[in-house]
Nucleic acid binder design. Structure first.
Lengths: 341, 341
DNA sequence: CGTGGAATTGAAAGCGCTTTGGACCGCCTG
DNA sequence: CAGGCGGTCCAAAGCGCTTTCAATTCCACG
């Protein structure tokens, strides 16, 4: 059943039916109802391609995930973000188009999505400190929102981010107040912007308490269980082991915990750990009582909001670049305690 | 730059240019080259909407994720599967369209995707033992591939699955051979087909060794860390605790490990654990030496293959339903050992 | 009653591509 | 030389929708 057939059934012109269905004001209320009813009855739905062709809008959003950075991107964070974004899209009638892209032809690919006209906007995932995609997308001229920021770029693009710096600064300060002096940082890959900011927060807190950072207690890498295990193992077996860890992800912290257990150390008594918790659906930080003390911010919520921002910018192209900073909450679990003497 | 403009530049008709670009035989070789060159030069790409409208093919595949089963679906397995599928799609010029769907209007939504004509096929995620989507999709008439199977349905639809039954049967047999008699199963949600099959495999192995399953040692649920912890804690504190665990996921096993450690039990010595390992990118089961003894099958590879099957069926609609069963490999890690006496 | 403006509806021209049904040309065959 | 036949190319008709512009109807009002 297409528009023309539906119109014939109703003894109306396609014009009127189209208008009725799209909420234009110049159609009589009774006609509109008649049309809507018939549309429901025959289960009519406009053909997306024809509509896209006629309107120039595609009603879909491109999420481009770089595959060479796969380890970083195809991770639960990505999944949860996408889910959040989808919740918004589905409400507004948008679709989500996922495009993996090999690192080389990134520009090529964005342009293709543009000129083939099949997305109305982009979400950019996993920005680096310096990230060429921002200039590229601006040049391409389609609305976009970056999940995260790129510290080394002029900050006049649209983004949504969690306040990584503040979160890690607060967490570090908490550990210091608990008496810890040798605090380790197990971070993500530090060319990624979020990890860089976390480190800044960490360093700022140390500095403001007059502590000198020890390079031996800072480690960055892909946030795997293994990284946590290795980093913790090395540090704990070192000459002057840390009494506390700041860990960038739940998964990594599990590795840290493994190293602790292996050495007969008890979490929260012998060694304190604070993690950043993205509040992922399937990897919860305890239920009633959090296992880990954590800075927490829902990445799913970020996805929802990013999508809202993007849609708003699509609807109103004149709109200034929207930006949004989310604060993490600091929640107390059982993994922190006063520094052992 | 659109087709017409390109044609004018070349002093050709749009017809010829279109044919040249789409590899039709009735265009002179020199003309074709001229056209291709110009297309490259002006960076011409056909408008996807127009093309879709004209051809009736959309060059995109729908992945529908049910949001009420979110906990099960939006998990790393889903992410890795998608990644694998994308690798295939991108090679063949397809796009991946992600649609979350509220449980109620599932049928509605599939139909909408169909009649609005914006996908050429579906991948079905997370089949239940009895799953209405299969009949629905068949009725809708678009090609589809199910990731997993639905045991209670006639098996004449296209699917790709891992041999869950065999994997768990082998794993159980291994534990029995190591002398274990009280073996616990910490499974996924057992209305999900994969979990059901795993349990069958587990039971079959017990039976064929003359062992009687103990309901107190079987638990199913969402495969979270917490499930593993709770299940293990309860069972270990019970009247006759198990000496070995069979665990359906890496994440869950981490919870089991936590319970063990808390009780001063050592993995592989006091208690053996075998997991199923989906070989996820960021949650590896060790590197050189696997931490857990595991049945392993790459879910990403499954995604790749599922996509290939689907594309083949799209190209050849007369093609019989493709089906593919992948075997898991059993890898020995450090989490298993002879039963303590 | 006539009239102008608002309300309502339609005809038709795209949107950018594919594809059908020729047209034209050169060349081979009988 | 007529007829036929590949080899190339093009004009034009869609695909199903939106949107501009114009037509028609309906009323209120003078």
């Amino acid at each position: 059943m297409n528009l023309k057939e539906l119109a014939q059934h109703l003894n109306l012109s396609p014009t009127t039916v189209s208008r009725a269905l799209n909420g234009y004001p110049e159609v009589k209320e009774t006609t509109r109802r008649r049309v809507e009813e018939a549309a429901r009855e025959f289960n009519y739905m406009p053909n997306a391609w024809a509509k896209g062709l006629a309107t120039g809008r595609s009603m879909s959003i491109g999420h481009v995930m770089p595959t060479s950075k796969m380890h970083e991107m195809v991770n639960p964070v990505f999944g949860d973000f996408i889910t959040g974004a989808s919740e918004t899209y589905v409400k507004e009638g948008y679709d989500l188009k996922l495009t993996p892209v090999d690192d080389g032809d990134e520009a090529q690919r964005y342009r293709a999505l543009r000129t083939r006209g099949n997305v109305d906007g982009f979400i950019v995932h996993g920005p680096h400190l310096t990230d060429g995609r921002i200039a590229l997308l601006r040049e391409i001229g389609l609305p976009f929102v970056v999940h995260g920021r790129a510290s080394n770029m002029p900050a006049d693009y649209p983004w949504i981010d969690m306040n990584n710096r503040r979160a890690f600064e607060r967490a570090t300060a908490l550990l210091i107040e608990l008496g810890h002096r040798r605090i380790a940082l197990v971070n993500g890959l530090e060319h990624m912007d979020f990890a860089h900011r976390r480190r800044e927060g960490f360093l700022a807190a140390l500095a403001s308490h007059g502590l000198v950072p020890d390079p031996a207690l800072m480690r960055g890498g892909e946030m795997t269980e293994r990284l946590g295990y290795r980093a913790a193992a090395d540090m704990l077996d070192g000459t002057s082991p840390p009494t506390a860890f700041l860990v960038s992800s739940m998964v990594t912290a599990i590795g840290v915990r493994r190293a602790l257990h292996e050495r007969g150390l008890e979490l929260g008594r012998d060694v304190s750990v604070i993690i950043h918790d993205d509040d992922l659906g399937y990897l919860r930080n305890g239920d009633d009582v959090p296992i880990f003390t954590a800075t927490r911010a829902s990445v799913r919520e970020a996805g929802r909001r990013a999508a809202e921002m993007l849609l708003r910018m699509i609807r109103d192209p004149a709109c200034a670049p929207l930006q949004s900073l989310m604060e993490a909450e600091l929640i107390l679990g059982r993994s922190t305690g006063p520094a052992p003497r």
